[in-house]
């Protein structure tokens, strides 16, 4: 029964494929998949690129998450992979096994914002150490009041809001603040939908939460962004386009990437698309609410792409507080 079904389906698929080939005209499709964080940028570029090419080249963008995107990428199913974190050692191995080589191109900054309620009067700045005290795994069930973090803060319940554990934002925040990816307390209000977090923090004076900068920018009237004091620094820095770009807003800003397969780079449509991507990123990145890299970074990225500088600059692990120019200059590992 199963065998019959299987062979029947195969026959159907073959018949369909034959018809498809018959009816096919020169289809040029650039396939992108991966992170939902990078998605708005890739969507914007895809939209403009298709308009410019008048539909002669088609672009599709999927959202499978960074990990899901790399799975498809390393199977050779996609040309470009959106990634909100660098490729991991495991994914590097999978790509190497399938013979897929790639160029790593940073395309924008993703900045996390720690937000509080506008009526919150006691937070003028937040130290990374204080954030750690609130969010580290050991705080679970113990740190439940603001004054437990800092005695000068009120004796009021501490209400935490953050993204769920599947999110790249969660991975990066835990890495940057708690020192280990995914190491977080579990007793906070978690949602994959950042708009839910916005609602939560805007309705509760005692709330504090974190999410991407774009969500804060869109909801400035309802929220306040906490200036962050990095470890070993004494200066509080508020998140903004300028502070992220000049690298002073740390450690909660990171570059996000696209990875381009070397096989796809030989296809003229993919090459044209990626060149267009880098060239138009400064404008389009800003339009969708992200922070663009510096001009020199995009220039260097374009050079790396033209020279087919293969491999990742990270060697399989994430790094907090990395400089983009240093990353672009690093020897690539495959």
């Amino acid at each position: 029964m199963v065998m019959k079904l299987k062979s029947g389906l195969r026959a159907l698929a073959l018949a369909g494929a034959a018809l498809a080939v018959q009816g096919a005209y020169a289809q040029q499709i650039v396939k992108i998949d991966g992170s939902s964080t990078v998605y708005p940028i890739s969507e914007a570029v895809a939209e403009e690129f298709q308009k410019m090419k008048k539909g002669a080249i088609k672009v599709t963008v999927g959202i499978s998450g960074t990990g899901g995107g790399f799975k498809k990428f390393c199977r050779g199913e996609t040309d470009v992979s959106d990634a909100s974190r660098p490729i991991s050692a495991k994914e590097m191995a999978a790509c190497a096994q399938a013979g897929i080589k790639y160029v790593e191109l940073p395309v924008a900054f993703d900045a996390l914002t720690v937000v509080i309620n506008p009526k919150n009067t006691w937070i003028k700045e937040l130290k990374v150490e204080e954030l750690k005290k609130m969010w580290e795994p050991g705080a679970q069930g113990k740190i439940t009041k603001w004054n437990q973090v800092n005695p000068s803060w009120p004796d009021a319940p501490l209400k935490l809001f953050g993204p769920g554990a599947d999110s790249g934002t969660f991975d990066y925040f835990t890495d940057a603040i708690n020192g280990k990816e995914k190491a977080s307390r579990g007793d906070f209000t978690a949602s994959e939908d950042d708009n839910v977090l916005v609602q939560g923090v805007s309705r509760d004076v005692n709330a504090i939460g974190y999410f991407g900068l774009a969500y804060y920018v869109e909801n400035k009237g309802k929220l306040k962004a906490a200036p962050i004091v990095n470890k070993g620094s004494s200066k509080a820095v508020s998140p903004s386009l300028e502070t992220v770009m000049d690298g002073t807003y740390q450690p909660l800003a990171r570059p996000i990437f696209i990875y381009v397969s070397d096989k796809s780079m030989n296809k003229p449509e993919v090459k044209a698309f990626v060149e267009y991507y880098i060239k138009n990123a400064p404008k389009l990145v800003k339009e969708v609410g992200y922070v663009p890299l510096g001009k020199q970074h995009y220039d260097q990225a374009a050079k790396n792409f033209a020279a087919k500088k293969l491999g990742t600059g990270f060697g399989g692990k994430s790094e907090v507080g990395i400089k983009v120019e240093e990353l672009l200059a690093r020897e690539g590992k495959l």
Partner: peptide
């Protein structure tokens, strides 16, 4: 593996010239 951004439609199932039907949309 459904896509999220796709700004074109597959070739229509019915065509003016032979073989008149087109199953490309299935794939």
């Amino acid at each position: 593996g459904a896509l999220t951004f796709i700004a074109f439609l597959p070739a229509p199932p019915v065509m003016a010239q032979a073989p008149f039907v087109n199953f490309e949309w299935l794939f």
